[in-house]
């Protein structure tokens, strides 16, 4: 047991420590990944062509930004490593508990991703209709009245919106591969 865990007197203190350590880990992972990406882009920007007409080429501005970003990545990693070390280890099930707590957000995100990927294939109407019904079902429209409302909302937002854009605004929303 390190100093921090000994100082955690109440359950809320303990929860705060767990959150700090988890976030520190998140920051470190994110910033390491980003730093690698930014260094790669920095090198890549060096090979962008320059012009005889201007002292700054295409790559100069991005390189200035990327250099600053790598510096900030380094600062964040250094700060968060200190936090990570100072806090007690995470409980064994911390990650799975967090994922379970956020299950609805991940569910909605998953459905949204399927919707977006389906739009060019089946068209806006047939991609949005199941998305709207399933998403409302996932978020609590479980009884007959709720399901009927969900279907009505889905029809308006899929077929209705498509018709509005086609007939009023003369904008064609994606129709899919078979239309």
């Amino acid at each position: 047991m390190n100093d921090a865990s000994r100082q955690a007197r109440s359950p809320s203190d303990r929860a705060r420590q767990v959150e700090t350590r988890a976030k520190a880990m998140g920051h470190i992972v994110l910033n390491v990944i980003l730093a690698i990406l930014f260094i790669f882009l920095f090198l890549r920007a060096g090979s962008l062509p320059s012009s005889v007409w201007e002292p700054l080429g295409s790559g100069t501005f991005p390189r200035m930004v990327l250099a600053a970003l790598v510096l900030f990545n380094g600062l964040i990693i250094a700060t968060e490593t200190r936090h990570f070390i100072a806090m007690p280890a995470l409980p064994a099930k911390a990650l799975s508990d967090w994922c379970y707590q956020h299950r609805l957000a991940f569910g909605v995100l998953g459905l949204f991703a399927l919707f977006v990927l389906a739009v060019p294939i089946v068209g806006f109407r047939w991609a949005s209709l199941p998305f709207l019904v399933t998403c409302q079902y996932l978020l609590g429209a479980r009884h007959l009245r709720g399901i009927l409302i969900a279907i009505a909302v889905a029809l308006v937002m899929s077929f209705g919106i498509e018709a509005l854009f086609r007939d009023v605004f003369t904008i064609s929303l994606p129709r899919g591969l078979w239309n």
Partner: peptide, 29 residues
């Protein structure tokens, strides 16, 4: 349960109609 999917759908419509590009909705995601 109604607001979230409806607004997400309108975001997709709005994003697509900006430039009529399907790739923009991938970027949105």
């Amino acid at each position: 349960s109604i607001i979230v999917p409806v607004v997400l759908t309108s975001c997709v419509v709005g994003t697509f109609t900006l430039n009529n590009r399907v790739t923009d909705i991938y970027l949105l995601l």
